[in-house]
C-alpha cells in the first residue's frame, strides 16, 4: 500500500459518503444518474468475485464489502425508496448504457490477463468502470444547475482514479516487473472523461459560482 493508493481509496470512499449524505439529507436523488449507480454496482460485483476466495487483508475485504453494499443500497433507494424514487430524473437519465456493458464485456473477452472467468470479469469491470460515469455526465449537462453535493460527488469520484494512476506510476518505478496495462490505460481513459467536468468545477470554485456544465 502506498500513499497514492490510500488517498485514492479514501477519496473513493468519500465520494460514496457524499452521495449517501446527499440522498439521506435531502431525501432526494435529483441530478443523480441511476444508470451510473447501476453500472457501478455491476463493476463492483464483477470485480470482487474473489471476495470469498482470496483473502488479501482485512482492509481489502472490508472496503470491497463497503463498495458492493453502498452501490446496491443507492440503487435500491433510487428504485424503491418511496420518497427518494420520486425525485429521480427519469426523463433526463436516458443514456442507453446497455452498449457500455456489451462493449466492455466484448473487450474483456478479447483483452484480459488470463482467460479465466474471474480474470475476464475483472477486465470487464475495469473497462465498464472507465465509461460508467457517462450517464451521470450526460445527466449533469441536461439538468440545469448542479447542487453542491452532487458536484462534489462527481469530483471525488473522478479524483480517486487520478490518485490510482499516481499509484501505478509509483509501483512501476519501485516494484520490479510491475505492469498493469489493462487498469492503467482504462484508468487514464476514465480520468480523461472527467476533464471537462474538472475544468468547469474549477471555474465554479474559482468564481465561487454555481457549477454549470454547458449543454
Amino acid at each position: 500500500m502506498n500513499i497514492f493508493r490510500l488517498a485514492g481509496d479514501m477519496t473513493h470512499l468519500l465520494s460514496i459518503l457524499v452521495l449517501l449524505l446527499k440522498i439521506y439529507a435531502t431525501k432526494s436523488c435529483s441530478g443523480i444518474s441511476r444508470k451510473t449507480q447501476e453500472l457501478y454496482a455491476i463493476v463492483f460485483m464483477a470485480r470482487y468475485l474473489d471476495l470469498f476466495t482470496d483473502f488479501i487483508s482485512v482492509y481489502n475485504t472490508f472496503m470491497k464489502l463497503i463498495f458492493i453494499a453502498s452501490s446496491l443500497a443507492i440503487v435500491w433507494c433510487m428504485r424503491f425508496h418511496p420518497v427518494v424514487r420520486r425525485s429521480y430524473d427519469r426523463e433526463l437519465d436516458t443514456f442507453r448504457y446497455f452498449f457500455l456493458v456489451g462493449a466492455s464485456f466484448a473487450l474483456a473477452l478479447v483483452w484480459h490477463d488470463k482467460f479465466t472467468l474471474q480474470e475476464v470479469f475483472w477486465a470487464f469491470s475495469i473497462y465498464l468502470e472507465a465509461v460508467a460515469i457517462l450517464p451521470q455526465l450526460v445527466l449533469l449537462q441536461r439538468s440545469g444547475n448542479v447542487d453542491n453535493l452532487t458536484g462534489q460527488y462527481v469530483f471525488f469520484l473522478g479524483a480517486y482514479r487520478a490518485f490510482y494512476i499516481l499509484n501505478w506510476i509509483y509501483r512501476y518505478m519501485t516494484e520490479p516487473r510491475f505492469t498493469r496495462w489493462i487498469a492503467g490505460i482504462s484508468g487514464v481513459v476514465q480520468t480523461a472523461l472527467y476533464a471537462d467536468f474538472f475544468y468547469y468545477y474549477f471555474i465554479s470554485w474559482k468564481n465561487n459560482s454555481k457549477l454549470k456544465l454547458p449543454a
Binding site: 493508493r5 481509496d9 473513493h12 474473489d50 482470496d54 488479501i56 481489502n60 472496503m63 470491497k64 463498495f67 490477463d113 475483472w122 490510482y164 499509484n167 516494484e175 516487473r177 510491475f178 498493469r180 489493462i182 487498469a183
Partner: peptide, 10 residues
C-alpha cells in the same frame, strides 16, 4: 499474495 497481481488493489 504474489506481489504485482492486481487483486491486491480495489
Amino acid at each position: 499474495v504474489v506481489e504485482g497481481n492486481h487483486h491486491d488493489e480495489l
